[in-house]
Each structure stands twice: as structure tokens, then as C-alpha cells.
């Protein structure tokens, strides 16, 4: 396969491109966002239920895009991209979770108006 080495278009990351994957990724993401828009527009759900539902739909859209658009999987080409992505998740949890915990604890102790 040495003849392929000099043509960058034969690189596996170029060959990952897939029109059906992009179309399905677009349709599913668009449908999920339209669905969550309708949930908010229609109303009727308790606020907490609606918030959890919107967050869950957003998570689903992120996962769909990660898989279909970013090709994050365990193939030889992509496994380290996937590993870096997965190992970033605990960083998100620590950054967002600890900061919010800190600020809410601060608000509760200092009773700054409007931060409860």
C-alpha cells in the first residue's frame, strides 16, 4: 500500500467522510432541537421536569453529533480522539460542578440578594 502514502486524500481521516452520516446527524439534531423548542413553547410541564427534559435532549444531541459528525468511536484512527473527549468529561464535571457548589454555598452564607 506504499502508493497510498503520498496521496493525502487516501488518509483514513479523509476517508471517514460520509454523506449519509452527516445527513442523519443533521436530521436527528434538528428534530431534537425542534422537539425541545416545542416542549418550551407548549408549556404545561412543571418547570423542573421541563428543565431536566431539555437538558436530557441536549445531551442526546451532543452524543449524536459526537458519533455521527465527529466519528468518535474506538477504531484505530479515532480511538485517541475518543479517549481525549471522554477524559475531558471529568474536567467539565469538576469545573462546572465545583464552581457552582462554591458559589451557591457562598450565596447561602452571605445572603447576597438575588443569588438564592
Amino acid at each position: 500500500m506504499s502508493h497510498e502514502l503520498h496521496n493525502p486524500l487516501h488518509h483514513p481521516e479523509v476517508q471517514l467522510a460520509s454523506t449519509p452520516r452527516y445527513v442523519v446527524g443533521f436530521l436527528v439534531s434538528a428534530a431534537l432541537m425542534a422537539l425541545s423548542f416545542l416542549i418550551v413553547r407548549r408549556g404545561g410541564l412543571p418547570a423542573l421536569d421541563a428543565q431536566v427534559l431539555i437538558a436530557a435532549i441536549a445531551l442526546a444531541a451532543v452524543l449524536v453529533q459526537s458519533y455521527l459528525l465527529f466519528h468518535l468511536n474506538f477504531s484505530e484512527t479515532q480511538r485517541w480522539h475518543t479517549a481525549a473527549f471522554v477524559l475531558t468529561i471529568p474536567l467539565f464535571v469538576l469545573l462546572v460542578g465545583l464552581s457552582m457548589w462554591m458559589f451557591h454555598a457562598l450565596a447561602a452564607r452571605t445572603m447576597i440578594p438575588g443569588m438564592h
Binding site: S29, M33, S36, F37, V40, A47, A50, Q51, I54, A55, I57, A58, A61, V62, Q65
Partner: peptide, 13 residues
């Protein structure tokens, strides 16, 4: 997706 869901939609509930 996150901007739309967590700012525009959550702020309109």
C-alpha cells in the same frame, strides 16, 4: 446545542 438548550430554552421556561 448547549447555548440554545441551556440559555434560550431554559431561560424561557
Amino acid at each position: 446545542v448547549c447555548v440554545f438548550a441551556f440559555i434560550y430554552l431554559q431561560g424561557s421556561i
